[in-house]
Amino acid sequence: MDPEPLWLTLRLATLTTLILFVIALPMAYWLAYSRFKGRSVVEAIIGMPLVLPPSVLGFYLLLAFSPSRAFGQWLESTLGLRLVFSFPGLVVASIIYSLPFMIYPLQAGLQSLPASLREASYTLGKSAWTTFFKVLLPNSKSAILTALVLTFAHTVGEFGVVLMIGGNIPGVTKVASVAIYNEVEALNYDAANQYALVLFVVTFLILSIIYTINNRLLRVRHPA
């Protein structure tokens, strides 16, 4: 078994999770606390990757990234970037694909905090910025953990989008899920089994560890 696809999956999932966390934090804050017109539309757009088949997303991304179309052409001429068939392209696609998995838990976590927490901080003269980082976030550890893990796991399990825009290049876009698909196609069930088993065990371990930690966090907050 060639470990490269597994390594690639790990890199993709880690990068996607980190970048998405930074992007999602302000969005979740905004969605949790502000009331504005067109809010339902914004929420619907964020939730789209949850329900759209990955093939739809992959198809549109393929067209968008293609250098023969307006957006892809613009990317190439101004930034010298070609996202189709490239690792950065997979990262961008994964960020879109996993967006709701990061935002929803964060938003729900922030919304579940009692308003008195924020109000107390404000009356003590703390800014919104300090309140967010020193009061709200430390009280949302469980939600943050859930968001990070769901995003990571969802990116590990990504297949349809990668297949559509990746081009199956070894070491660049051939992630573990695609490698499994290839081995099955080549009737090489042993290799497919090995990749599949590694993914199976790794995801099981990650989820178990996270749930253990999460349960402990909850017990601290609500002691029995």
């Binding site: 393929l62 293609s66 250098p67 297949l163 825009i165 081009g167 199956n168 698909y181």
Partner: peptide, 21 residues
């Protein structure tokens, strides 16, 4: 420079969409 389609159909789609040169 090579990108691999999973079948001739996907390969053709890569070419026809201009994603591959």
């Amino acid at each position: 420079k090579l990108v691999y389609g999973e079948s001739i159909a996907q390969t053709s789609q890569y070419i026809a969409s201009g994603a591959a040169d």
